[in-house]
Design a protein around this nucleic acid. Structure first.
Lengths: 334, 334
DNA sequence: CTGTTAGCGCGTTCAC
DNA sequence: GTGAACGCGCTAACAG
């Protein structure tokens, strides 16, 4: 690897001069400047970011912890983070936590050992205080979670409102017998979306027995199972609201297998708007979780943290309805 | 940040001793060893990987270049790479190239400047010689592409065989009027899969006019368009083979919209087996592109390169049929 | 304007 | 078995 010393010899100047022209730290005589640039080009010299990091106490790296790379939800998050980081001349080093406390902790420690300038964290398994402990020595933004003591460093999504919005949309299309297929793990996201769902029904005066519930893993297979159970017990339903798009996809499959004509005979709505929506049939009407925007905002905040500048206090991201084709207006049919 | 010096002071030994117990480089008296360990724990000391990298000339980082994070295909690749890297105690730093030569080059340069120990590259826009130039100073593995001069450093997929396998499967199920929906960009993947498709038909004595072709972008929307055009011109088709799963998803939508009963009335097969297959209805029969395995193998090779050990010469990954529900055996129907 | 020097945090000689 | 000293590649403060 060619070092600053090699360049200095070739350009016949001192290493400081190299450093100066490359960083614009001070004025350098035009002829020497040219000689340096020439030598740099000829040698294809790239300053070592690690040597720079050692002396500058900045690595230019943002550590990112996500659950699972293969999941497009996180892929989209990574992309938002990476693109915005590039704007600030930083790079991203991402790791998987698999929703396991030990792995999440190990990943964070590795990121810390790399001396990342800042961390962006999506962790479900770690407790609030564990997270607080691990991040105490490094500027961190926690996404998709709200930790009371760290609130100004959290970016989250209004899951309650998402559930509410989806249900309201269904109600507005004339549905009154709506099933809910939820996630079987008791996590805040699921609770909140369900709470919003219930609130919307209640406001419309729909009795609870008109809104049966089934739980399953938050996957397509889970959505399929939950839907099957739901339809067997409650054949009078006209719509299903799913915890997320993956479950909604499984739900659609269960409906297709029953030879229902979609969307005319049954409506489905999801939450997340991750990738899947346009691939399914009918194309899924859903609630958008602006995960890419959240990733970008996280980087903005980090930049603000690192430069001690101010940032907006707006931590909570609002859901947005994405109307595609999976919901049918049954009020017109009647 | 707590440094080795802090630990040394606290443990009342020299920094060399700290280094020795942490790296097991030499024997240390038991009492001092304990003192060191105690101080390390109390201070929660993590050796700086960047200082280590500077002196050890190893960063423990693998640079990874992919097209697009949000695409599950690459998400799965990243996951394969990351998991295997973790086995070797290395970490991954990933960047996006967006299939644009300048961005791919910039990304590689950034990775090089970070002094990654090795690179794993999925680049479409860069020319062979550009790639060769960029990677000449760093052990690199090129995935999903075969470069003659770098062949032992390439890992690729037998696209021809994939196209052949898919077509053969369709033929075996009694289909003889099969459409092809391909990618409108002229890249090797598309050409090879199509070549394999044609070979299978030819071997079965199917005349070319029974196998019409349409091209479109390699997305669900493209698959939808191509299918629509194909069906309008050739209403007698009984099956479609798609360039990839995304196009197959769009294809399914076009079929659903024509109120075809699937899979009974029309069969579809894709290639890639990325994530989508189980979400669609009918669940997609496809050809598996073992991208996660390729990612793992790439890391194995890198490790071999870095340790000068031998590795298998097996560069070409074979396709595998994944039978799900989107192909109907029409020979039984007749 | 420019070269020399002192670290950044750590692994690794060398003497002791 | 252990500590002092050097250097990895670079930036920043210091002289000139």
């Amino acid at each position: 690897m060619v070092t600053i010393k090699d360049v200095a010899e070739r350009a016949e100047v001192s290493i400081s001069t190299i450093s100066r022209v490359l960083n614009g730290t001070a004025n350098v005589a035009a002829d020497k400047r040219d000689a340096v640039l020439k030598a740099v080009a000829e040698l294809d010299y790239q300053p070592s970011t690690i040597a720079r990091a050692l002396v500058g106490h900045r690595t230019g790296m943002i550590g990112l912890l996500v659950n699972n790379f293969a999941d497009p939800f996180f892929g989209t998050l990574i992309r938002g983070v990476e693109q915005q980081a590039a704007q600030y001349g930083m790079q991203v080093i991402a790791t998987e936590g698999h929703h396991q406390a030990e792995q999440e902790e190990a990943a964070l420690r590795a990121l810390l050992a790399r001396r990342c300038d800042a961390l962006i964290i999506h962790a479900l398994a770690l407790s609030d205080w564990q997270l607080a402990g691990l991040t105490s020595h490094c500027p961190s933004i926690v996404v998709n979670r709200s930790i009371p003591e760290l609130e100004s460093h959290c970016l989250w999504f209004d899951n309650d409102q998402a559930g509410y919005l989806a249900a309201q949309y269904l109600l507005g299309k004339g549905h009154s017998r709506i099933g809910w297929i939820g996630r079987d793990e008791d996590i805040a996201d699921n609770r909140d979306r369900f709470t919003g769902f219930c609130r919307a029904l209640q406001e419309s005066g729909i009795p609870r027995q008109n809104a049966p519930v089934e739980s399953a893993p938050a996957t397509a297979a889970g959505g399929y199972q939950a839907t099957s159970r739901l339809l067997t017990k409650h054949p009078d339903l006209t719509a299903i609201q799913a915890y997320n798009d993956a479950m909604a996809a499984g739900c659609l499959r269960a409906l297709h297998e029953r030879n229902l004509r979609l969307p005319d005979q049954f409506s489905v709505v999801g939450v997340d708007d991750v990738y899947l929506g346009e691939y399914l049939y009918p194309q899924l009407t859903t609630i958008r979780y602006p995960i890419e925007t959240i990733g970008q905002q996280a980087v903005h905040r980090i930049h603000a943290l690192l430069t001690n500048s101010a940032f907006d206090a707006d931590h909570c991201f609002k859901p947005e309805l994405i109307e595609r084709g999976s919901v049918f207006d049954i009020s017109r049919k009647v």
